[in-house]
Nucleic acid binder design. Structure first.
Lengths: 203, 203, 203, 203
DNA sequence: GATGAATGAGCTTTCATTCAT
DNA sequence: AATGAATGAAAGCTCATTCAT
């Protein structure tokens, strides 16, 4: 007896290797941003990218590897935002906090994604490598800060404490803002938390 | 149709409802702290508690309900730690930040658990109810802060911003400390972040 | 640390054995009618009756036994409805079909319940005993029909065929009516299907 | 976090998608007929088909979807059997009832399956969509009947009543026959119930 | 009689990953 | 390089039934 035929497969566009790789990355990013890393399945990425399961595994070592590839870009983007034109302690500190705010408010879903991975990294071994970066952000500020301490421009604080004073408020605010619990104009927020960071650590 | 009749069973220690309930909660807490909420399975809790699957579901509606029961305790503990003896703006603000630090350093695993659930709450509907509490902490400080604003004792900031300035550094520090990235004496840390909180928001 | 106390138990009204038995039967009937036999759990009955699980099993041998107890009453009710005052072939046949309609439209949920059990009885051994009754209804009509055949008052049909001609339309109509697919005035429907039954089998 | 990597597996016969799909459908049908839809588990189907759980879910959305796929075939078979060569009222009505009988006696297990699902559909939401079709059968007869009413060829009855008079006896008889309670030669039965249907509704 | 905690096999379903084609 | 069928352990959860108290 005739049965409903298996569902028709839509012909797939032929892409070069690099294009396919990119399209998978894009799709993965979209999925991770939209529904979170955990809730995203390989199948979601397959559907969003138009690639096949096998293809995804041909290019990447799995869900974790996809996340890692994307995180590196994300961290780089955040880094770029935080660069100050001047090298004075005040400028560097302010730019660090303000940059985090600017970047986070511009990329709220990316921020949430990073926050999620950061949390997972505490227990998931696959993210152990990137955990430090996610928790502490770019390390260049750490280096600068040591110099400022020696120059007595800022309080003599261990880096974790300084990091918390500089980035903590901004990070906290982004958590509120990216989950719809706060909304100040981005510019004002960047200024506010930049100033606060400097007040908190200046000598 | 009918489920297979129960087979002969090895007799199990008979506990009263409350005892069993407690033993399940304790086991769940242990598992969540050890391997994280997501990685913990009902089976883990079953083994750790000595209860059976059915018993766990007899007392709780599932993994989420267990987490919720535990979180209420956690929030209560944090709340208790943050009470100041005085009601002056300075005392309240300092106690809030210092209390979070004290509680978190005393209960590092509980803090990590809270932090994990807070992140999950962004996407997991089962934690939507408690999300606000986890993100913003006790709301009483929010009320007090409004009064301080009217009395011109603190800066006129929207609560999300103020919350970030007061709790952000402490929260950030706890994240570093509870994952082995920082270690200052608890007392000094509480003082440091209490003072910083006050400096950040005072008028 | 204090935990939410186990939920308070509302004091239970003390009933005599017979009262308790009745209350369980009533609750079971209500549940079966409302959500169907399969979808009803012992827990549903427990909640609806106010009895405890143990109590239910003290009085009945399980879900199946509860259904059987109720079915006997149901069948009796149906039987009662179908009795004709006269014993003429026409009166008996008409009363049989009309009685089924009257009873079914008066007890639509009970009809659905019986229909459900009848279907289950095909594969579920626990209902094998009652299967015949559920499929064929009261057997007294069968006996009468044989006599009518001998008296040449009705067609000479094997009982299954006669049963189908007499009860089939009514049964079919009840299936439509009790699932919201038909609605004729009960009286008219009883007449209609009574007449049709007689036309179908009369010699 | 990550699911345990797949272990080494025993190689399984490789089938094309369609072959595997068919083998699963066949196995499901066999199980449903043998033990009933409700009593059949995915595991039963897995064992009967030789597919793995994952494979079954790869092709179908679950037990309900399997039943639906099979039902479509069943309804189609029934429909095909009921087509009359002539379009006169008498031919159409007779063919409808006789066709149901013929199809049902040829596919007794399929009829039982349909009957089971029809009953379940009353309460099971997953079958709500197909419920009407299962209860009322093919709708084309309904359309024809309206025309016959207008042409005064048949009694002026609402469709549910007409449906019951036409199909009710046949349906009832099939229920008896497919559960071993009746056995008339198929041809005679088709004639008998075809004639009865026409007598019941002709003007 | 009455209680309700305890049982645990069994259910449906998910999904990261593999690998024959 | 690409495909997608196949894998199968493991997850969360259900529920008729038992039995110590």
């Amino acid at each position: 007896m005739a049965r409903a035929a298996a569902k028709k497969v839509k012909p797939r566009k032929r892409l070069t290797g690099d294009e396919r790789r990119e399209s998978i990355l894009d799709a993965a990013l979209g999925c991770f941003l939209e529904k979170g890393y955990i809730a995203t399945t390989i199948n979601d990425i397959r559907e969003a990218s138009g690639a096949t399961t096998g293809s995804i595994y041909h290019f990447f070592d799995g869900k974790g590897a996809l996340a890692m590839a994307l995180l590196e870009d994300a961290v780089a983007g955040w880094s770029g935002e935080s660069t100050s034109t001047s090298e004075t302690p005040e400028a560097v500190v302010k730019a660090s906090a303000a940059g985090l705010i600017s970047w986070g408010l511009k990329n709220p879903e990316l921020f949430r994604f990073m926050d999620e991975i950061r949390t997972l990294a505490v227990t998931a071994p696959e993210f152990a490598d990137i955990a430090d970066t996610l928790v502490e952000g770019q390390s260049s500020v750490s280096t600068s800060f040591s110099k400022f301490v020696k120059a007595k421009k800022v309080k003599d604080l261990p880096w974790p404490a300084a990091h918390s004073l500089i980035f903590g408020p901004a990070y906290n605010y982004l958590r509120l803002a990216t989950t719809g619990r706060a909304r100040i104009a981005a510019k004002r927020a960047a200024e506010l938390f930049g100033d606060a960071a400097w007040v908190a650590v200046k000598a």
